[in-house]
């Protein structure tokens, strides 16, 4: 299954290697890894998605903690969270075929961020399934995709809400694994909304 970890690490040379090397040593493939500054100076935030056995989460988190440069590890798989990914997609489109791509992009709430005589660039943000959905419909519509650049998943735990808010969001305060699975299938509530709108 896919595991998602958020690791706060020291912003120093070589730290990424140490983290990546750990997964290599455990013979676990990294599906995506995003890293950037966090809210704290000198601390970077990594979101690591990897494919591993369902019971591997504890060992991966425990092993990450063994790296001296790792400050905090969160196995967000168990927790209510928001997950997003950003993608830039360059599509071959002439003035004649552009409008079709515009329409698709609008349905997916994606933006056109560059326009050239023979191509355009789409920026889309959302859960992975939404991005995969756009790619699929572009392909099916016969629009040739020239390039795709994806950030990989970034996640953040949901904040502390009052019980009424949580109830309205259908997010229990403390989630069980079973509830998490249900959420994964249907995405988080806000994603549900998006999925409804886009008809995915």
């Amino acid at each position: 299954m896919l595991h998602t970890f958020v690791a706060l690490v020291e912003d120093r040379p070589g730290v990424l290697t140490r983290v990546a090397s750990l997964f290599r040593r455990l013979n676990i493939n990294i599906v995506s890894l995003t890293v950037g500054h966090s809210e704290r100076i000198g601390v970077s935030r990594m979101t690591i998605v990897c494919e591993a056995s369902p019971t591997a989460g504890h060992r991966i988190a425990a092993s990450l903690y063994k790296l001296e440069n790792v400050l905090q590890v969160d196995d967000v798989g168990q927790l209510s969270h928001v997950a997003r990914e950003l993608a830039l997609i360059k599509v071959a489109a002439t003035p004649k075929t552009r409008s079709q791509v515009f329409e698709l992009a609008e349905v997916f709430r994606a933006r056109i961020v560059d326009l050239a005589p023979e191509s355009l660039m789409i920026e889309i943000t959302g859960v992975e399934s939404k991005i995969e959905g756009l790619i699929q419909v572009l392909n099916e519509a016969g629009d040739r995709i020239l390039e795709i650049s994806r950030t990989g998943r970034m996640v953040m735990r949901r904040g502390q809400h009052t019980s009424r808010v949580l109830e309205a969001m259908r997010v229990p305060g403390v989630e069980t694994v079973a509830e998490f699975k249900a959420e994964e299938d249907s995405a988080a509530p806000s994603d549900l909304l998006m999925a409804d709108e886009t008809g995915l």
Binding site: T55, H58, R59, A62, S63, Y65, K66
Partner: peptide
């Protein structure tokens, strides 16, 4: 003492 050894 090493949590990574638990259930390994």
């Amino acid at each position: 003492v090493d949590p990574a050894e638990i259930d390994k």
